[in-house]
């Protein structure tokens, strides 16, 4: 498989702290890769480096053959990065539909076309009945789904999901997993996700990258990672995965 996203030896230091330390991994075309690790392991920083919020101190990020290292967030979006935020950032006073319209306008300046595209995406993430509501009235899980639809509206090559399952009930998690699986299967979009909900990580990902203190300590299939001793010790705990 060819790599869609290649992260090559990126590091980011905040003052003295090495938040991300020489991390490399790839996401193949159409693949789903999970980035896991304890809080403070550098998952969100890695996301922000890929999405252009910060520029890495060292290393290179390549998306579909294009070097996107240090591109501004809007340029990264143009290159094909779509992302959600761990701490949700809805356009609160705008309606749910309008939120997604903003994303859809990336591809067409025609507002009417953007509206119908947005409506389709709301259907996909299960928010169609909330379309006319102000986004600030949504529950947290709904806001996460809204962010997903908004990011998808920009028609990215890869979707970066930052803890979209947090706070969901198990049945909701299964539904979200199914949503992303269907999305991946039907559109071929690649997904890079960070997640603490292991149930979702195990069900979704083809491959898992484990970070600890900013370093990659393990990479492999869900089964391999679940058996890896370093991972068990630093993150999962010995009886976490059954």
């Amino acid at each position: 498989m060819t790599a869609l996203l290649a992260v090559e030896g990126i590091s980011k230091r905040f003052r003295g702290l090495k938040a991300v330390d020489d991390v490399s991994f790839t996401v193949p075309k159409g693949g789903i890769v999970a980035l896991i690790g304890p809080n403070g392991a550098g998952k969100t920083t890695t996301f922000n480096l890929i999405a252009g919020v910060y520029a890495p101190d060292t290393g290179r990020i390549v998306l579909d053959g294009e070097d996107i290292t240090s591109l501004r967030p809007d340029r990264a979006c143009h290159a094909g990065i779509g992302r959600t935020f761990q701490i949700v950032k809805p356009f609160g006073a705008m309606t749910v539909l309008e939120n997604v319209v903003v994303g859809a306008l990336r591809r067409s300046a025609d507002v009417a076309a953007a509206r119908s595209r947005a409506a389709e995406l709301l259907e996909r993430v299960g928010l169609a009945d909330k379309a006319a509501m102000p986004a600030q009235g949504l529950t947290l899980p709904e806001k996460k789904r809204l962010e997903t639809a908004r990011a998808l509206a920009t028609e990215p090559k890869i979707l970066l999901l930052d803890e979209v399952m947090a706070g969901l009930r198990p049945t909701e998690i299964d539904r979200m997993v199914e949503t992303f699986r269907a999305l991946n299967r039907e559109t071929g979009i690649a997904i890079l996700l960070t997640e603490h909900v292991m149930r979702a990580v195990m069900a979704l990902s083809d491959r898992i990258v484990v970070l600890h203190h900013g370093r990659k300590i393990c990479e492999g299939s869900p089964e391999q990672v679940a058996r890896n001793e370093a991972v068990l010790e630093s993150y999962l705990g010995t009886e976490a995965v059954s």
Partner: peptide
């Protein structure tokens, strides 16, 4: 307000980081 620039302005007003992540040159 009903064209692209209006949507982009409102997005920037509501959340600049999210607006930028959606490709808007804020």
């Amino acid at each position: 307000l009903t064209s692209r620039i209006g949507f982009y302005w409102m997005a920037i007003r509501e959340d600049q980081d999210a607006a930028q992540a959606l490709g808007i040159d804020t």
